[in-house]
Simulated scan of single mutants.
Amino acid sequence: MAKAAVETYYEDGQWKVKVEGNQRASRTFETKAEAEKAGRERAKALETEHVIKNKNGEIAQKNSYGNDPRPPKGSRG
C-alpha cells in the first residue's frame, strides 16, 4: 500500500502543507516557496510523494522521495 502523499496548496489566502488524508493542514505559510520547502522536507522524512499545486488547485509538480515503484535507469547502483 502506498504511503500518503504530502500536498502543498493554496487556500484561504495562505499556502499550506498537509499529509494526504488529514483533515487540516499541518503548517501554513505566507509564500509558496516557504511552503514548498517545508512540504519537500516532510515528504523526504516520510519517504513519500510531494504534490505541489498552483493557486488555482491544478497540480504543478510531483516529486517522489523513496516511494517510486519505477526509479530512473541507473539509480539502483
Rank of each mutant, 00 (worst) to 15 (best):
S64K: 14
Q14R: 08
G21M: 05
K62I: 15
G57V: 05
A25I: 10
A60V: 01
L46K: 07
E58I: 05
A4G: 01
G21Q: 06
K32C: 03
Y10R: 02
A33C: 05
N67S: 13
R42M: 15
K32E: 15
K62P: 10
I52D: 03
Y9A: 06
R76F: 03
S26Y: 05
R70S: 14
D12R: 11
A4I: 04
P72L: 00
W15E: 07
E7Q: 08
G57N: 02
G66M: 07
A25F: 14
K55D: 12
A33M: 01
R70G: 07
W15R: 00
A43T: 06
N63V: 08
E36T: 02
S75W: 02
R27C: 10
Q61N: 04
K37Q: 09
G74Y: 12
P71Q: 09
G39Q: 04
G57W: 10
S64A: 12
A4T: 03
A33P: 01
E7P: 00
G21F: 03
G74Q: 03
Q61V: 05
T48M: 04
G77R: 10
K16G: 09
E49H: 07
K32A: 11
N54F: 09
E49K: 10
N56A: 07
I52C: 09
E30L: 02
Y10N: 11
S64R: 15
K73C: 04
G77E: 07
E49T: 10
E47V: 00
K73Y: 12
R24F: 14
E34R: 11
M1G: 15
K73W: 08
N67H: 09
S64M: 14
A45C: 07
K18E: 09
K62A: 08
R70C: 10
Q61S: 06
M1D: 14
V51M: 03
R40L: 11
W15S: 04
K37E: 13
K18V: 13
G74S: 05
Q14H: 02
Y9F: 15
E58M: 06
G66F: 03
N22T: 03
W15G: 02
T28A: 14
V6C: 08
R76P: 02
R40V: 08
A60M: 11
K55F: 05
T8D: 06
K18S: 08
K3S: 02
M1I: 14
S26P: 00
E58V: 04
G77A: 12
R24V: 11
E30Q: 11
R70V: 13
A45I: 00
V51N: 00
N63A: 04
D12S: 03
N22L: 00
N22W: 05
S75I: 00
T31S: 13
A60L: 08
P72I: 02
A43L: 08
N22Y: 00
E49G: 01
E20M: 08
E47T: 11
